[in-house]
Amino acid sequence: MERGSFHVQQLTGATRFLLVLAAAFAFTTVALLSTGVSPLEAYRLVLFGAFSTPVRLSDMMMLAAPLLLCATGLTITFAGGLYNLGVEGQIIVGAIAAMVPLRLWPDWPPLLLWLLAGLSGMTGGAFWAMLIGALRRYAGVSEIFAGLGMNFLASGLALYMVLGPWRRQTSASLSGTELLPRELWLPTLDRLRLAPAAPVIAVLALGVVW
């Protein structure tokens, strides 16, 4: 009986996954059709565009790493019955906090700065999430609306830092900040813009949470 129950649970989980996947494709297809975009062309670009060259593949991996890391954290809040729609703001504030030690003490040893940047990023994101939790706990504001509102504040803070204290001093361009010294970058594969440590950390985090 236990073995049969186990197979039923496995089948239910697989069926649920397939239903969710089908629903996601159906919703995406409807959204693309409503904007006059060919779904087949869009899917072709998604499936083959990222794998067409080594540079594009490495860029995709670097973009996926922080998203996977944050999605891993989201599974914890969802398991607790909370809808953390403020994760975008937490990513932004965490990124700003991670940059602080790198900007203040660029001459420190890279390993120490990487550790400080990681701890600062986690602290900044947790602090932003704590504000949302405080609004829910003490003001009765739903974490959904509080999180979405805090996302706008976080975006404004990022714009202020990019266009203000961290703006490029040697250029009239407002497109970004000064690059960090090369020695502070994570080890990167030449001509691929891929820092292998980033996706490895994200996958390890996923395994730990799993």
Rank of each mutant, 00 (worst) to 15 (best):
A139S: 13
L104P: 00
V87L: 04
F27L: 15
Y138W: 15
Q169K: 13
L63T: 14
L116D: 02
R16Y: 09
P199S: 02
C70A: 15
L40I: 11
M62Q: 13
M99C: 04
V20S: 03
F48M: 12
A65W: 02
M122K: 00
A79F: 08
L111S: 12
L184T: 10
V93K: 01
M62N: 05
T177M: 13
S155R: 11
G13K: 10
G207S: 02
S38H: 11
T53H: 06
G125L: 11
F152S: 06
M62T: 04
A117C: 02
F27V: 15
E88H: 02
V200A: 07
E183G: 08
G73H: 08
V46P: 00
A126H: 01
G73T: 08
V37I: 15
L184M: 02
G73W: 02
A117E: 08
I132Q: 12
L115C: 08
L32E: 05
V37M: 14
P109W: 05
L33M: 15
W185A: 15
V37P: 01
S175F: 11
L18V: 11
M150I: 11
Q90H: 01
L68W: 02
V141T: 14
I92Y: 10
L74E: 13
T28W: 07
A139M: 14
E41Q: 10
Y83S: 05
D59M: 11
L113C: 04
E143Q: 06
T12Q: 12
L74T: 09
A42Q: 09
W128A: 04
L148D: 03
P66T: 07
V8K: 12
G49L: 13
G207A: 12
A71R: 09
L116W: 05
D190E: 15
M1W: 13
T35A: 13
A97W: 02
I91L: 15
L82H: 07
M1F: 13
L32V: 13
S171C: 05
G164N: 05
A198C: 01
L159I: 10
L69R: 03
G133N: 05
G176A: 08
L116V: 12
S155P: 00
S120N: 03
L112T: 13
G118P: 04
V209S: 00
R136T: 08
